[in-house]
Design a binder for these strands. Structure first.
Length: 586
RNA sequence: GGGGUCGUAGUUCAGUUGGUUAGAACGCCGGCCUGUCACGCCGGAGGUCGCGAGUUCGAGUCUCGUCGGCCCCGCCA
């Protein structure tokens, strides 16, 4: 067998007259009797080859079926002007086959490769090797490669060292459920697959590596979503002797490089939005800022109003918040009522609306009880305009905003206010250090327990935990959290104090990460970093709704690999080696 | 753990108030065709209606259970 001379996307008119050998998959056969066209496909493209004039060759070509792997040799010919195909890169040439070899036959595929029609996802996953041949996955895998290579180049240029950390690791404190790996050598003991290389990267800073990155696989044994898989990839970074601003600058430069790999340019620096403001104005810590539609506080309007429900809510420490939906002022009464139903489905006890009618008159679900004056002031204060619908929610400030935040996302999409090409990148900063956990009955770290508090909030660690802000930040793209990080604690006493506040006992802390506390005592540089969700970023760049479509071998929502059948039962001998016993079937 | 939704030919789907032989398109197989490129034309094969019970004279259709895909809530520092 002769060597491949070109890929299926390579030949041009400049190759005219030369001999070429292509290898690839039979994409499509067009059999015209004594003239047969075959499209041969590989990762690089599609080339039309043609069999004619030779009875034996025609007979052989007739036997080709979709997805056979073939080698064809022949002369590159320029197509006549009336048979050019502008739809493919190689459309000005074709190969007149002299020799055809079937390298491998193929069973009839369970779905058509040469077809962009949708195929159910379970079939795609079971036959992933066939799905990967299709244009969509070819494009996505190539995009993923380009983006990751650009990221590695950018980080290398910025002085980061690519360092690998263990996959067989120690269970991290708090956080998600771990995937555990039993130790054969140490009966009853387990490794944990890392949820992130958090402690290792901080120890690399203590180890003087100054700037570290890793394209790291992370594992979390939690339920899946379209943007969550049990194993996923992060660009994990850590930097020494830096402030938050230095981390931001490095990440912004990195993000620019990654977007450039998809021929997109983005503006830096990214805007910064304090957490509290995000929660108030957008009802979310990951606001989609492709559309403004900010939620406003209108408590003032109702503080003295005749509408008791709102007056009481304010008196009880709550707030009245309003969202203007541009264009929704022309909704029919029943459409507006449906919005109220939607709000109730989202868990609201109710939702009030108001707008101006065609004559400038005030219309509202509470017109009679609140009065036209108050509602007129509401419409002015919220800047509803002529065709804006104002939705109003009452309750605890964050809850009122959270409800309107959900309505904001739905209605912005429904009203076509979101530009799909827009890339809204934002830093959300000043996260709270702690949040109260009802289930645990104690404060938990909002980010993780190694996060440093803001200097000016530090003295409130003793008095008012809930108000302490952290040097923690998230990176948000189009309403999706694509990264999160913080400046870490580099002083051992403070770290010890934080564990104490989190209700982690000295003994507990020592046994779980005493090694880390000890490391902090040997000269720790101030440091901080971030982890970026590679799968999510690439899915957004590719315009894919699920990260599964930018991963070669993802798992289903039930955390199963449909192709390999993992997870599966194992041989009893393996269990015995690992000192495990099967539990009785339930 | 909870909720929603889908499961019919190889694939994507349609299938009316429960009623005779379950359809379409694409694909597949065969035939014809020397300029196609989603080739065209003619013909053909192909179904455990996810699985199991139940209701009924009769179930793709209704009920219950179960399995699987997807989406969401909880969960995910």
């Amino acid at each position: 067998m002769s060597e491949r001379t070109h890929t299926c996307g390579a030949l041009r008119t400049t190759d005219m007259g030369s001999e070429a050998t292509l290898m690839g998959w039979v994409h499509r056969v067009r059999d015209l009797g004594s003239l047969i066209f075959v499209d041969i496909r590989d990762r690089y493209g599609l080339t039309q080859v043609v069999a004619r004039d030779d009875e034996a060759l025609l007979a052989q070509t007739k036997r080709l079926r979709p997805e056979y792997v073939i080698a064809v040799s022949g002369t590159v010919e320029r197509r006549s002007d009336d048979t050019l195909n502008p739809k493919i890169e190689t459309g000005e040439i074709e190969i007149a086959i002299r020799e055809l070899t079937v390298l491998s036959e193929a069973r009839r595929p369970p779905f058509q490769i040469a077809d962009e029609n949708p195929v159910s996802e379970d079939l795609r996953l079971k036959y992933r090797y066939l799905d990967l041949r299709r244009d969509r996955m070819q494009r996505n895998m190539q995009l993923r490669h380009r983006v990751l290579m650009a990221a590695r180049r950018s980080l290398d240029e910025q002085g980061f060292l690519d360092i690998e950390t263990p996959v067989l690791a120690k269970s991290t404190p708090e956080g998600a459920r771990d995937y555990l790996v039993p130790s054969r050598v140490h009966p009853g003991e387990f490794f944990a697959l890392p949820q992130s290389p958090q402690i290792f990267k901080q120890i690399l800073m203590i180890g003087g590596m100054d700037r570290y990155f890793q394209v790291a696989r992370c594992f979390r044994d939690e339920d899946l979503r379209s943007d969550r898989q049990p194993e996923f990839t992060q660009i994990d970074m850590e930097m020494s002797f830096v402030t938050q601003e230095t981390v931001f600058a490095a990440v912004e430069r990195l993000m620019q490089a990654m977007f450039a790999a998809n021929d997109e340019s983005i503006v830096t620096p990214f805007p910064r939005l304090p957490y509290a403001e995000a929660m108030d104005k957008y009802g979310s810590d990951k606001p989609d800022l492709r559309v403004e539609m900010a939620i406003v506080d209108v408590s003032d309007v109702f503080a003295e109003s005749s509408f008791r429900v709102f007056r009481d809510a304010i008196a009880g420490g709550g707030a009245i918040r309003a969202l203007v939906v541009p264009g929704a002022g022309r909704y029919s009464r029943s459409q507006v009522d449906k919005l109220v139903d939607e709000a109730i489905e989202l868990g609201a006890t109710g939702m009030v609306w108001a707008r101006r009618g065609p004559e400038g008159d005030v219309q509202s679900s509470i017109l009679k009880v609140a009065g036209a004056d108050t509602l007129g002031r509401l419409l002015d204060s919220a800047e509803a305009g002529a065709d804006g619908l104002v939705l109003v929610a009452a309750g605890a400030p964050h809850e009122a905003s959270a409800l309107l935040g959900k309505m904001r996302l739905r209605l912005a999409a429904r009203e076509g206010l979101i530009d799909e090409r827009c890339r809204a990148l934002t830093w959300v900063v000043d996260f709270p250090m702690f949040e109260w956990s009802e289930t645990e009955g104690r404060h938990m770290s909002m980010h993780h327990p190694f996060t440093a508090p803001r200097d000016e909030d530090r003295d409130r660690l003793d008095t008012d935990l809930g108000s302490v802000r952290a040097k923690a930040y998230d990176l948000v793209l189009n309403g999706s959290e694509i990264g999160g990080g913080s400046i870490r604690i580099h002083e051992q006493p403070l770290q010890r104090r934080i564990f104490e506040l989190l209700g982690i006992s000295d003994e507990d802390a020592r046994s779980r990460f005493g090694f880390f506390l000890e490391a902090l005592e040997y000269g720790t540089p101030p440091h901080g970093g971030i982890a970026l969700g590679v799968d999510r970023i690439i899915a957004l760049l590719a315009g894919e709704p699920s990260i599964r479509d930018v991963m070669a071998f993802p798992k289903t929502a039930a955390a199963v690999d449909l192709m390999t059948g993992a997870p599966s039962t194992v041989d009893p001998h393996q269990l015995r080696d690992l000192h495990l016993e099967p539990t009785p079937e339930r």
